[in-house]
Simulated scan of single mutants.
Amino acid sequence: MLALIDLEMEKHGRKPEPNIFGSVWRFLRRCLFLVLALGPMPNHIAFIMDGNRRYAKRRNVKEGTGHGVGFTTLTSVCQYCFEMGVKYVTVYAFSIDNFKRKPEEVQSLMDLMKEKIDELLEEESIVQKYGFRINFWGSLDLLSEPVRLAAEKAMAHTASNTGPVLSVCVAYTSTNEIMRAIKKSCARKRLGTRGYANCDGESVCEDIDGCVTVADLEENLDTADCPDPDIVIRTSGETRLSNFLLWQTSLSHLQNPNPLWPEFSLRNLIWAILEYQKIYPYLEARRRLAKKEN
Rank of each mutant, 00 (worst) to 15 (best):
residue 1 M to V: 03
residue 1 M to L: 08
residue 2 L to S: 02
residue 4 L to V: 10
residue 4 L to H: 08
residue 10 E to D: 09
residue 17 E to T: 08
residue 26 R to M: 10
residue 31 C to W: 15
residue 33 F to I: 00
residue 36 L to H: 00
residue 36 L to V: 03
residue 45 I to T: 04
residue 45 I to K: 05
residue 45 I to F: 10
residue 51 G to N: 10
residue 54 R to N: 05
residue 55 Y to A: 07
residue 64 G to D: 11
residue 67 H to W: 02
residue 67 H to D: 01
residue 68 G to M: 14
residue 71 F to N: 01
residue 76 S to H: 03
residue 76 S to G: 06
residue 77 V to K: 04
residue 78 C to P: 04
residue 80 Y to T: 13
residue 85 G to P: 00
residue 85 G to C: 01
residue 89 V to W: 07
residue 91 V to T: 05
residue 92 Y to V: 02
residue 101 R to E: 02
residue 102 K to D: 13
residue 107 Q to H: 05
residue 109 L to S: 09
residue 113 M to T: 13
residue 116 K to N: 11
residue 124 E to N: 15
residue 125 S to V: 09
residue 125 S to Y: 09
residue 127 V to S: 07
residue 128 Q to D: 12
residue 129 K to R: 14
residue 132 F to L: 12
residue 133 R to W: 06
residue 137 W to Y: 14
residue 138 G to N: 13
residue 138 G to S: 11
residue 143 L to A: 15
residue 146 P to A: 13
residue 148 R to Y: 07
residue 150 A to H: 14
residue 153 K to Y: 14
residue 154 A to V: 07
residue 156 A to V: 10
residue 165 V to A: 04
residue 168 V to K: 11
residue 168 V to Y: 14
residue 171 A to P: 09
residue 175 T to Q: 15
residue 177 E to W: 01
residue 180 R to I: 07
residue 186 C to S: 13
residue 187 A to C: 10
residue 200 D to R: 15
residue 205 C to F: 13
residue 218 E to W: 02
residue 220 N to A: 04
residue 223 T to M: 05
residue 227 P to K: 05
residue 228 D to W: 01
residue 228 D to H: 08
residue 228 D to L: 03
residue 234 R to F: 08
residue 236 S to V: 03
residue 241 L to Y: 01
residue 241 L to S: 03
residue 245 L to W: 08
residue 246 L to Q: 08
residue 248 Q to A: 05
residue 250 S to N: 04
residue 250 S to C: 09
residue 253 H to F: 11
residue 263 E to F: 09
residue 264 F to W: 07
residue 267 R to A: 11
residue 269 L to A: 00
residue 275 E to R: 06
residue 277 Q to D: 00
residue 277 Q to V: 00
residue 278 K to I: 02
residue 286 R to Y: 02
